[in-house]
Design a protein around this nucleic acid. Sequence first.
RNA 1: GCGCCCGUAGCUCAGUUGGAUAGAGCCCCAGCCUUCUAAGCUGGUUGUCGCAGGUUCGAUUCCUGCCGGGCGCACCA
Length: 580
Amino acid sequence: MREKIIDALQSALKQARQKGQLRTDSLPAVTLDLPKRPEWGDLASTVAMSLASSEQRSPQDVARIILENVDQREVLFDRVEIAHPGFLNMTVKRALWLEVLPQIEEQGEAYGRADFGKGRRVLVEYVSANPTGPLHVGHGRGAAVGQAISNLLAAAGYDVLKEYYINDAGRQMKLLGASVYARYQELCGRPASFPEEGYRGAYIETVAGHVRDRVGTTLLDSPADQAEQRCRDQAYEELLGLIRQDLRLFGIEFDSWFSEASLASSGGVEQVLEELRKRDLLFEQDGALWFRSSAFGDEKDRVVRKQEGEYTYLASDIAYHRDKLRRGYDLLIDVWGADHHGYIPRMEAVVQAYGYPKDRLRVVLVQMVNLMRGGRKVEMSKRAGEFITMRELIDEVGADATKFFFLMRRSDTHLDFDLELAKQQSAENPVYYVQYAHARISSLFRVAEERGIPVPKPRETDLDVLTHPDEFGLIRKLSAYPSVVHASAAALEPHRITFYLQELAGLLHTFYFKHRIMPPAADLEAPDAERFVKDADASTRQREQVTPGLTAARLTLMRQVQRVIRNGLGLLGVSAPDRM
RNA sequence: GCGCCCGUAGCUCAGUUGGAUAGAGCCCCAGCCUUCUAAGCUGGUUGUCGCAGGUUCGAUUCCUGCCGGGCGCACCA
């Protein structure tokens, strides 16, 4: 539907140019907006205004020219007006709007998908938490955002790979091993000094206990290095397992788990740095090895190998991103905690250092989550080991609500997560509000089936009986869905879907309340429908009579609303229940 | 000090490449279930879009300065 209008305007522009009425040689992309007020029609375009300055004539003149060149005006529009200062306000033919319904039905799951990704390959990396402990709430938000962005890009026609980068090398892992080893010794009755910056969570003791279960006290007699290594391996395996389990519970999936250690062990770091050296982007100073990142806009150069000869974290990250680039992705997306934002210029420098454009990498920042209970912030301190894990959060409020809440705000703004609200089963809870809309529609079809009310295909239904403004409100909203998905994917902003779904659900609930889809059950037994119509004053609710034709058409409409809600929730990774 | 992000209704936030009279939810108040799911609906109140300039036919949106908040400025990860 929208495509038809856009095409029509676009060819009008072309025609006008051919006739010499417009002189610009670059025609702008035609976009359609939803006007705020009904008297402005049901679609609006601002092309004329955006062309006005380059044409050096008034927006109204340009609008008039465009309008003159629209073929088939009578077929497409009931009315087109030029409004001040140059809006094209269009009232589209009813038949065109109605066409949206069979389209959704036919496209089904694919409705809303686009192909602007054109099969380009994108790698989305997210979560990537160190396997040194359970996932916390912040990781959860990153997981929800990363997954939703992946889904969006897939819907936009990209070929998506979801990857988890396992930081299984370096100091943190050593500390982890040392922490477990210390606890292990304590469990075995030998006093041990705990590493200063070690991991103090209770799960460390659990792991230590498992080590002892497996090997008894034999590690006490092994050299400390070996013993620590053993503890580290055990901890790694267990904690990564926990992370995987939590993610599975949360409904987050990855196609690929990439190990940092595998880079180092395969000599990848040296090799990759050698490439930089050849490009004269590495230099030695003060006994350390530096990456000339300032050549690409970073504020200063960065150390990749310390004086002591150890590689920095950046070195692995260079190797990792080099690897991702080498794997041939057209776009890399990194989902990071917002506290790493200072790292962005560095990584952009890396991408450019290897000869790729800066925008080959897009970093999505995810801000902190404040858990709120009863209007008060739940204090968390990582130092004291007092933080709510992702697992606890999911156990308390459920995976669906958790994801939805994480995706309700732009990811780069702080999020206040109201635990009580997320659990509440009421209209105040946006998750249930949207899911309930879906469940209500499912229920309609169950009832229809029970009563033997036919549910024909849209193409076999006379949709022309849909004339009520509320019906068109829904249809218009449905028709906007693909452009919402498109914009959301292009901006890497899943929250737009969340907002859209709340609006659509709102329209559905209002519609459901105000209108009848099927005749009341009582009519079947006692077909004196009058009693439902007589005292229409008592309530505005559902007093209208419906003919079988209207029932069929409205069921069709409901079917498509349900479809779009399901597709939208699917993008967010939230389930669309049939019963609640 | 330098850099990045943010500042929109009492609260939490949207605001679609710069568009028309800036929206939603929460909170508060008053109503609505004999019917297809009340996990729902209807109505009511709310704004110097942080401040001051600039660009523009038009600015919440772009630019500059200032104020306020957050984060980052490691040979940590």
